[in-house]
Write a protein that binds this DNA or RNA. Structure first.
Lengths: 217, 217
DNA sequence: AGAGAACCGTAACGTACGGTACTGCCATCT
DNA sequence: AGATGGCAGTACCGTACGTTACGGTTCTCT
């Protein structure tokens, strides 16, 4: 599998045309799900099947390239913990929660997660790992420094950042992702997302907020 | 789709032989995922394909029947809220959390959710709805009376049982289900499940436990 | 015992799709 | 201008699998 361009790790090394093809594949993936055909992709992208195979090796290669291409598009700015107070910490957490909810409720995320989940069943590729790496684990990498900074500023109290993160993850996501993946209609308006973000943040602070305000800094 | 026995709603109305066939299909589903073939099911169940089609209509019919058959097997005892104190409430919540974690980390649940998720993409059947109904919503139906009883006993304080349930759901499940569905190796031993259950329960009580002990009853 | 249905095992059919080969067009290079 | 190479478009091949058909066997009921 994936012989031609086995080195498509990030969104680099892709020509404009190739990116356009992957965008077409992505749109088709959102519309059709995992039962998109190579012919359909070629038609949508106005390219030949032979080109698809030359560039991406095989169907799995095209799919992983598509997923990684989408992943490379969502790089988010880092938050720095300098001069952190309870207000800025709260704002950061709410921002993360809101962003995350928006991501997992987006059509593309749902489609990508669906195909990744089904592929994870029969281990022909590592789509699941890719999605996991650019989803849940990327979120952890971006959020943990904030949590650590909050602890350093005496605002948070936890022993293990991983555990704290997972709790936050659970408070934010709850049953949303699995329900959406299973096809539940669940309209997440801007308003409800905002409300859920502050709720989750408040709950998280109630659980992990430092009782005292120590080591003033 | 599913013309022959369109009325397989619950596990009733199934002969012994049919149940055996569905068990075979279930085992095969766990092993092979969604790419099980009708031939393989027939071979595993020692029955003919003609019988499969006569009983279940088509492939989708067989799959939904299999999912419903598995769902019908997990009926759990109800908890009654009589004479509830903080200890029994805690025990109930921990029990629910532990059971739920055991379910979602089981091989069969993972396999069933995987196929349901992938089928939810292309709406050819309602596998997603079936799984949702017998999973997340069944859990809510069973847990909410406990929460209400806890509130009535003055142990819990919440305005909306649904919101409280969803928080509990998030605290228990966190990232477990999506990670497992995406193929993450995540060994949930009996010990870690137990630990997670008490942690989630403690966190839930910290968020929703009544501050005062009112309306003694 | 005998008729009839249910059912097993398997062969056969049709189709959808992944993958490959071929042809001709267009752009770039010399 | 002629040559070269990348690519669109399409025809083609092989295969896997859903679905159907059928002969032979076992079970059931009378």
């Amino acid at each position: 599998m994936l012989q031609a361009n086995a080195d498509i790790d990030n969104g680099e090394e892709l020509t404009e045309r190739q990116q356009a093809v992957l965008d077409a594949a992505l749109r088709l993936l959102v519309e059709e799900g995992d039962n998109l055909t190579m012919t359909a992709v070629a038609r949508r992208a106005s390219c030949s099947k032979e080109t698809l195979y030359k560039w991406f090796g095989d169907r799995d290669g095209l799919l992983t390239a598509t997923v990684q291409w989408q992943a490379s598009k969502v790089r988010v700015a880092q938050v720095d913990g300098r001069g952190m107070d309870v207000a800025s910490l709260t704002a950061s957490l709410e921002r993360f929660a809101s962003d995350w909810l928006k991501v997992i409720s987006s059509d593309t995320s749902i489609a990508l997660n669906r195909v990744a989940v089904s592929h994870a069943g029969s281990g022909k590729d590592n789509l699941g790992a890719v999605v996991l790496e650019n989803g849940r684990f990327a979120l952890a990498r971006r959020l943990k420094p904030v949590l650590e900074a909050g602890r350093l500023a005496g605002l948070l109290d936890f022993s293990d950042a991983e555990t704290a993160f997972r709790t936050f993850f659970g408070l934010v996501g709850r049953d949303v992702q699995i329900r959406l993946l299973l096809g539940d209609r669940l309209e997440l308006t801007e308003a409800t997302i905002g409300g859920d973000a502050v709720r989750a943040t408040q709950q998280f602070l109630a659980l992990f907020g430092a009782k005292t305000r120590p080591q003033g800094l």
